[in-house]
Design a protein around this nucleic acid. Structure first.
Lengths: 150, 150
DNA sequence: CTCATTGCAAAGGATTTGCACTAAT
DNA sequence: ATTAGTGCAAATCCTTTGCAATGAG
């Protein structure tokens, strides 16, 4: 199972860096790895609590930092005023589409974008590092019903 | 002159909405219109003060909201943790490139992106509203010198 | 045992808001 | 005169940090 594997990789990362494998770190990593969504810190906290585990906010932030550093999780910023976190799962770079009505997030991949952004950067004398694209729109469900979940 | 014209349009907007044309509103609008950069709230405040005018932080935020609502100014989010504001000046939608070393911002336009994002959105059942693309990289100057301004 | 982690609460930065005072129409 | 705007400080939201208590190796 994927979650199990990710968790094992996290344990390995911690050991290799001489960092204690604590209950909290495992609980938090577990929640993020188990999710197929882009979780906010608040959502991570709620999920951890729902599993009967305990973890203070500070610990959640600190552990998410570790997960990002380990490369097992990516940080996202959809311009909502807070960050979201997504398990990497060896999936290559991809873009996001956000429903401005219900907040739903879809992902897509387009290789042209990598090439385009590299070329555009170069034509301006920049050496490209990365890019960030978010498409904002209204998802099929919300178009049909005129509102979130209704 | 452009600034003069923008300012006139702002006055018109205020009158049409029965909003008082105050000294502060004009000073703030003037600063944003006069700039060819993407100003942060802090920078707007500094520029207003530099012009010998007075305006509290709250007023700056409130006036920037008005400017955005009027369509004369656009809000930008480059993932820095705060917002920036750019005069519209009738310039069509464009993208941004950010130097991760010195913070320099360049602009570019690519019509393909409009089409691409619309098609991608549709293929996922979304009706596209807008998109946001930022390319992060190192500008020519910083590549040459290995640091900002040195 | 020793040292890093944890949790809580205080601190921080950006932005908003309540309210008495002031200015625009 | 009215009515809305302004400034200040308090309040909020997300995130970070200091420090005593706690747990991993």
């Amino acid at each position: 199972m994927d979650v199990r594997n990710d968790l094992e990789q996290f344990r390995t990362y911690l050991r290799q860096h001489n960092l204690p494998v604590t209950q909290q770190r495992l609980a938090i990593a577990n929640v993020v790895f188990a999710s197929d969504r882009h979780l906010s810190v608040e959502e991570v906290a709620a999920d951890v609590a729902a599993q009967g585990e305990n973890a203070g906010t500070a610990t959640i932030y600190r552990t998410l930092d570790l997960l990002v550093k380990s490369g097992l999780v990516v940080e996202r910023d959809f311009g909502e005023g807070f960050r979201r976190f997504e398990p990497t799962r060896g999936i290559p770079h991809h873009e996001h589409m956000l429903c401005t009505v219900c907040g739903r997030v879809d992902e897509f991949r387009d290789e042209r974008l990598e090439r385009m952004t590299t070329l555009i950067a170069e034509s301006h004398g920049y050496s490209r590092q990365r890019h960030r694209l978010v498409i904002y729109g209204v998802c099929a469900d919300c178009q049909r019903s005129g509102g979130p979940g209704r």
